[in-house]
């Protein structure tokens, strides 16, 4: 079984400042992975490196393919609807996706739109925070790929929207695809995670199975995550 993602010794600098260094991370197919870290820890940068949207040192293989230009065809990542003007309607964004991505499944998108109660005639500028996240989820999950990246889909949204989004992930994530969800607040998504990856000190600081954390340490994911920050510098 090929790993969905294999990151080997990856580093990234911006204006001579180290954002990430010595990142090693391997993800198997069919997992839901929580990417946790403080604001500014480098979670979004790591996602951009995976999609090929940012270039760093080291190698990143997606489905065994190390060529960054090929990654977009294996990875679905919708970064905050960047690149679309505020007056673009959701249905126009969807038709753009349909044109650009051969794996964009129109029928799946319609199912997601119905489930998430999205009005596709709305302009981007008219979307509330929760609705914008729902649109991003629908666009991201409508593609049929091996790796899905969601960048803080739950920040600042109401609990009803959050529950809908979580259900849509559980319903529509293909069984053998892996999904990475970044967040700086973990307790709301903890029950749906297979694994937890913690970004700290500009690198992947820990990578553990969620139920192993509970069984080994007898603590919740939130507590475990906080303890890594409290015990700064001490690692087992």
């Amino acid at each position: 079984m090929t790993n969905v993602l294999a990151i080997d010794h990856v580093g990234y600098k911006h204006n001579f400042k180290t954002i990430l260094h010595d990142v090693d991370l391997t993800l198997e197919p069919g997992k839901i992975v929580g990417l946790l870290g403080e604001n500014g820890a480098g979670k979004t940068t790591l996602m951009r490196l995976i999609t090929g949207g940012a270039k760093g040192s080291g190698t990143i293989a997606v489905c065994g393919d190390t060529q960054a230009a090929h990654h977009r065809s294996h990875v679905s990542f919708t970064e905050q609807l960047r690149g679309f003007s505020a007056s673009t309607r959701v249905e126009q964004v969807a038709s753009f996706y349909r044109t650009v991505y051969a794996d964009f499944d129109g029928a799946r998108f319609e199912e997601l739109v119905t489930f998430l109660q999205i009005d596709t005639s709305l302009k981007i500028a008219a979307l509330s925070k929760g609705m914008k996240e729902k649109v991003i989820i629908a666009l991201t999950l409508a593609r049929q790929v091996n790796l899905y990246l969601l960048d803080e889909p739950f920040s600042g949204i109401d609990s009803m929207s959050r529950k809908r989004i979580i259900s849509s992930i559980l319903k529509w994530k293909p069984a053998d695809a892996t999904m990475v969800i970044s967040d700086h607040y973990v307790s709301e998504i903890a029950p749906i995670l297979d694994e937890v990856v913690i970004v700290k000190d500009q690198t992947v600081y820990a990578h553990q199975a969620a139920d192993d954390i509970r069984a080994e340490f007898g603590v919740g994911i939130e507590r475990y995550y906080e303890s890594l920050y409290e015990g700064s510098g001490q690692r087992d």
């Binding site: 839901i32 529950k163 559980l170 319903k171 069984a175 029950p191 749906i192 297979d194 139920d211």
Partner: peptide, 17 residues
Amino acid sequence: VRQLAVDLTVNVNTVQR
């Protein structure tokens, strides 16, 4: 399995385990 996962709001792999 997937229905159980959605009903309980947990991961499919965890249900399978």
